[in-house]
Amino acid sequence: MSFYFAIVGTKDNPIYEAEFGTSKQGGDGVARFREEQRSMNQFIVHSSLDIVEEVQWATPTMYMKCVDKFNNLQVSCFLTAGNIKFLLLHDQKADDAIRQFFTDVYDLYTKTLMNPFYEVDMRITSGVFDGKVKQAAKKYL
């Protein structure tokens, strides 16, 4: 089971992306997308942004479970109060685990916002953030 995670800003600009595979049940944590599949990941995730924008006004919660499907892949979304979208592309259902993962990443994201040198919609290039996101992925996914 592989995951592609992206954070998209308020102007639909990508801020951060990462790939991981599941660490459960003998998985080794490495994403296994087929080569041509990989280049499609970004497109799939970004095309679901339209649906997110539609659905966001209907739901009162930050975690919108599965917003879009493409072939056998699903896109789940978490929308922050500042209109930043966390999108996760995955092939199996795992609502609870994904929600916990999103909550952890949200915590990391707010800490990034506290950095006075970081402006909203800036790309996140911090190695520390990257490491912690991968840790959270290992924990929940």
Binding site: K111, M114, N115, P116, F117, T125, S126, V128
Partner: peptide, 8 residues
């Protein structure tokens, strides 16, 4: 300096 990371 809580939460601060210097620009790289």
């Amino acid at each position: 300096a809580d939460f601060v990371e210097l620009p790289d």
